[in-house]
């Protein structure tokens, strides 16, 4: 993307836009799910949001609705998805060799602003999620900056849902326009983290600490997978760490389940309400006061 291009024309690759969500931050929120992730979590609940389409075209012939076609844009092969023909059968996701998703939409900042404008009275803010949203940081910065600059939208909070892998330099660019972030801490020990995600968790700790220090850490999320994650083994150190961020740090516990999961993780046990409550009570006993439990268990 050329640097001289007006910022408002910056594009994002969006796998889904939800006009209303009540589980992605405070209040009612519009959520943008950006395509592409730099982790390879074994337990990913949306594995088709990890890859980016390389235009190989393998999915085209399998589409029963003929909603996919190969086009050339900027001299590169791209899949064009006809939303109106698509019946959402997800065959294309199943056959994709890249864990990618041909059903993406490219939105400019301006287009997203128009959508937000149309429903601004119904929402408390917007959340950008993924995939890993921070991989499309320039778009997010321009979007949040434009929201904060608009008299009719500036009351909306701008939040980021992230795996915490963004560099400190990246965070410093975003912070002036960010109201808060939800950060996943996928495991306590770096070996466990590497086993689950393919990457270590050094950057995640750095991100969490910076956000807490800047009063922009909305919540730390722990996805509990009994027998796989190591929150229980590291409970003392983990609690100590979270307490150092502030005793009132909001810790959201999520329960692992099999919906959307593929391969090895399907052999892992689902997390029950009892499992979650045990973890919650361990954290509470160690002084954490703001633990949030799942509202439903699958």
């Amino acid at each position: 993307m050329s640097l001289t291009k007006p910022a408002i024309n910056k594009q994002a690759i969006v796998s889904q836009l939800l006009p209303f969500s009540c589980v992605d931050g405070p209040g009612s929120r519009l959520v943008l799910f950006l395509q592409g992730c730099n982790y390879q979590c074994k337990n990913c609940h949306n594995p088709h949001t990890i890859g980016l389409c390389d235009g190989c075209g393998d999915c085209i012939a399998t589409c029963p609705d003929k909603a996919l076609t190969l086009i050339k844009a900027n001299n590169k092969h791209q899949i064009h998805w006809d939303k109106d023909r698509c019946s959402q059968c997800d065959t294309c996701l199943a056959v994709c060799p890249q864990q990618a998703n041909p059903k993406v939409t490219r939105y400019t900042v301006e287009e997203i602003l128009a959508i937000i404008h149309h429903q601004r009275h119904f929402i408390n803010g917007i959340t950008v999620s993924g995939g890993e949203a921070s991989l499309q940081l320039p778009f997010i910065i321009e979007l949040f900056k434009a929201i904060k600059a608009s008299p009719q939208l500036s009351q909306l909070t701008c939040m980021l849902d992230t795996n915490g892998s963004l560099s400190l330099t990246g965070w410093h660019k975003l912070l002036p326009f960010l109201d808060g972030a939800m950060v996943d801490l996928k495991a306590w020990q770096k070996e466990t983290h590497r086993y689950i995600t393919g990457r270590d968790n050094h950057a995640v700790f750095k991100s969490i600490e910076l956000l807490a220090q800047q009063q922009k850490l909305y919540e730390v999320r722990l996805l509990h997978i009994p027998g796989i994650t190591d929150f229980e083994q590291g409970i003392d150190a983990l609690s100590c760490y979270l307490l150092r961020l502030g005793a009132n740090t909001r810790v959201k516990l999520n329960a692992f389940h099999h919906h959307g999961v593929v391969d090895e993780a399907l052999t892992w046990p689902s997390c029950t309400q009892t499992d979650i409550e045990a973890l919650a009570s361990s954290l509470t006993q160690r002084g954490l006061t703001n633990i949030v439990l799942p509202s439903i268990y699958l």
Binding site: Q16, V23, F33, A255
Partner: peptide
């Protein structure tokens, strides 16, 4: 019932 983020963020996990 509205399923929020059914595919992309099953609500308990997001």
């Amino acid at each position: 019932a509205r399923v929020i983020a059914h595919e992309h963020s099953p609500c308990v996990v997001n």
